[in-house]
Design a protein around this nucleic acid. Sequence first.
DNA 1: CTGCATCCTTACCGATACTG
DNA 2: CAGTATCGGTAAGGATGCAG
Lengths: 133, 133
Amino acid sequence: MSVAHTEITSQANGPCGDDDCGIRDVLDRIGDKWTVLVMVELGKGVRRFRELHRAIPGISQRMLTLTTRRLCRDGLVERTAYPTIPPQVEYRLTPIGRSLAKMVEELADWSRTHKDAIADAREQWDVGHPGDG
Amino acid sequence: MSVAHTEITSQANGPCGDDDCGIRDVLDRIGDKWTVLVMVELGKGVRRFRELHRAIPGISQRMLTLTTRRLCRDGLVERTAYPTIPPQVEYRLTPIGRSLAKMVEELADWSRTHKDAIADAREQWDVGHPGDG
DNA sequence: CTGCATCCTTACCGATACTG
DNA sequence: CAGTATCGGTAAGGATGCAG
């Protein structure tokens, strides 16, 4: 994402006082455009590359490749490639990946619960602030 | 952030089956560079603009202004301006803002717990994939 | 089918100067 | 003190074509 520290240890200041609790890295992962969608889909079970691609409308092949690779790099997703022709690759959540997926689900629940309230707040704001984003 | 749908209702597909659960909007907010830091600081109590600025090293005035304004727009933060000279403005979390701050804290807890595991996974990955980000 | 390489547009964000 | 206005670097991500 836009922050991209790359190294998990390179944070000047975290939100937890003055020590780095690592949340920046997690947000750099799940905060990007496609990661949550991939994780939720993989939360339903093992998926092949093409299945993910069809299950997530709008994602490009390039972004699906990058997203799955980053998830693999962080140990959240496991990749299994069978040397067949044509190639066949399976993706599945690791235990730690499933635990993060659970957090994401809770966030999704929160979103569902407060979605309308936020929409209302924005409408209220926007009428009082024309020409604002 | 990079996604920026602006409208809370303009999502083709959410992670929850085929309906939009609004998580995209939440991630667009807390996924950006500074929002979590501001929320956690406000979680400690009422803060003035300058106090936030000093409490969050590295943030520019511009970004602090944008971040607080977006939080206000979503109804997560309340802004109180006193017409004194010099001006004085207070920011505090709304009830819904506090509830989101709680979710963020849980995510921070998760990060602390799994930080080392992720760092290890990255190291493992990087040794096997030189020249990769 | 699964990926990689390249070009290109968008917009996030930092730096700086200015206002009431 | 609490913003606003403007400029510019940079990285994310979309489109397209090629490869094993």
